[in-house]
């Protein structure tokens, strides 16, 4: 078997462009997912019966279906149902928001509920309203406990973007596939793609580990 690693250099600009799209989908998707997940998680932990049920249904729906099906639904079925066309990029971002949001909701709920009830009572007993107890006492404590599982979810979501090959978004995996189809350099191209993913997830891991180190878990 002959390998020719120079093809990697030739196609590097294309691969990097693909990686940029991967990062874009991941970053925007996770920012949205964090907001959605925090709201849904707090609804699960502190909402009344109705809010809790709504958030529970959302989480179960998303966790119970594959992300490929979710993005296919957003890209192909939603336009039929609503008449609104979405481009592949928006569908991809939306899929990460909705998908990561569900998992983050469970992480947020768990982090808040793991804090002893006594702390919340101590805050309430001072005469604070519930929302201030959440913001000033439980929030900062929960945040520290959130970081490790959130880091995990971030890495999963980054890798999940490769599945969006099915709707033709020009992210990293899709780019690799296209180059491959033209020159059949499977070993070189997929090795390069894998390494780029490793660099991306590795950067995330290191960043999270640094944040974790600077914060004591209480």
């Amino acid at each position: 078997m002959q390998t020719d690693w120079s093809v990697v250099l030739t196609f590097l600009p294309q691969l990097i462009a693909g990686a940029k799209i991967t990062v874009q989908i991941t970053v925007i998707g996770l920012l949205g997912g964090l907001i959605l997940g925090t709201v849904a998680g707090l609804m699960r932990a502190y909402g009344g019966r109705v809010l809790n049920a709504v958030a529970f249904a959302y989480v179960e729906l998303i966790r119970g279906t594959p992300i490929v099906v979710q993005v296919m639904f957003l890209y192909f079925a939603m336009p039929v149902l609503t008449g609104l066309r979405v481009d592949p990029m928006s569908a991809a971002v939306l899929a990460i928001i909705v998908n990561a949001g569900a998992y983050i909701a469970e992480i947020v709920r768990g982090a808040f509920l793991s804090i002893s009830k006594g702390l919340s009572e101590a805050g309430l007993a001072l005469g604070l309203p519930q929302w201030k107890v959440l913001v000033y006492i439980l929030g900062p404590l929960a945040f520290r406990r959130l970081i490790p599982p959130l880091g995990n979810q971030f890495i999963v979501s980054l890798k999940d973007t490769s599945l969006f090959i099915v709707i033709g978004v020009g992210e990293l995996t899709r780019t690799g596939q296209e180059i491959m189809a033209a020159n059949f350099r499977a070993v070189e191209i997929w090795t390069a793609v894998a390494i780029i993913y490793l660099v991306l997830t590795g950067t995330m891991s290191v960043a999270l580990r640094m944040i974790e180190k600077r914060m004591r878990i209480l």
């Binding site: 002893s116 101590a122 404590l141």
Partner: peptide
């Protein structure tokens, strides 16, 4: 609720488990 918060400001509580804010 609002009156309850006023009551709580006038009645301090000390718990068996201290419950200090650890952060």
């Amino acid at each position: 609720k609002k009156q309850l918060r006023l009551i709580r400001q006038e009645a301090g509580m000390v718990f068996q488990q201290f419950n200090l804010f650890p952060q």
